[in-house]
């Protein structure tokens, strides 16, 4: 009921522009009107809204928003920086790991090489020793063979004489006479053939 005329009034005051306050005052003085459409309060509301909102806007623009923006920026910078650092540290760790593995591989191959060398050296030494032993054995063997041959020769040489002597003695025992040595030896030689 009261809304319609009040709204009409407002439209009218909008159209009239400057005059609205006077109309509004009259209307407000009438009492019982719907407060939001009571245009007598408009100048005051507009003024105080302009003052308060204007100050609020300036305060936010000059002080609060730069501050919050700064906080957020510092934080995101810090996070980015920390992430960068983490990435860098990870890279370093990776590099260290790679270096470690490289060194490990190097050490392994070196150890293998040393082992191989040692094995070969030992083998060569053993071979040399074996050869030396073999050589000494060989020389001893040939020495022994020479001695055997010598002894054999001596023995063989003695055999004739012993046989002659023995023959001489046996003949002497059998027939009781001493036989001529040369005859005995030729007889022994003949029988040995």
């Amino acid at each position: 009921m009261f809304v319609a005329p009040a709204f009409a009034q407002e439209l009218e005051t909008e159209a009239h522009g400057e005059t609205h306050s006077e109309v509004g005052v009259d209307h407000g003085a009438g009492g019982g009107s719907f407060p939001p459409f009571d245009s007598s309060t408009y100048p005051s509301q507009l003024l105080w809204l302009a003052i308060t909102f204007g100050l609020f806007y300036l305060f936010l623009q000059k002080v609060v928003l730069p501050r919050i923006g700064g906080i957020l920026e510092v934080r995101s910078d810090r996070i980015a920086q920390d992430l960068d650092q983490a990435a860098k540290l990870k890279e370093e760790a990776d590099a260290a790991l790679a270096a470690y593995e490289q060194e490990l591989a190097d050490a392994k191959s070196k150890a293998n090489a040393i082992g191989q060398d040692a094995r070969e050296a030992a083998k060569a030494e053993a071979e040399a020793e074996r050869k030396q032993v073999e050589a000494s054995l060989e020389s001893k063997l040939s020495e022994a063979e020479a001695r055997i041959a010598l002894i054999k020769d001596a023995a063989m040489r003695d055999v004739g004489q012993i046989a002659e002597e023995t023959t001489g003695l046996i003949v002497k025992e059998l027939i009781g006479t001493t036989m001529d040595k040369s005859a005995v030896s030729s007889a022994v030689k003949a029988s040995r053939r």
């Binding site: 306050s21 005052v25 309060t41 005051s44 105080w48 308060t52």
Partner: peptide, 18 residues
Amino acid sequence: GGLDFSFTNSSLFMVATV
């Protein structure tokens, strides 16, 4: 200037809001 710019309860709450 003939206009009512009174500090009202509305103004008070605008100030309070801000």
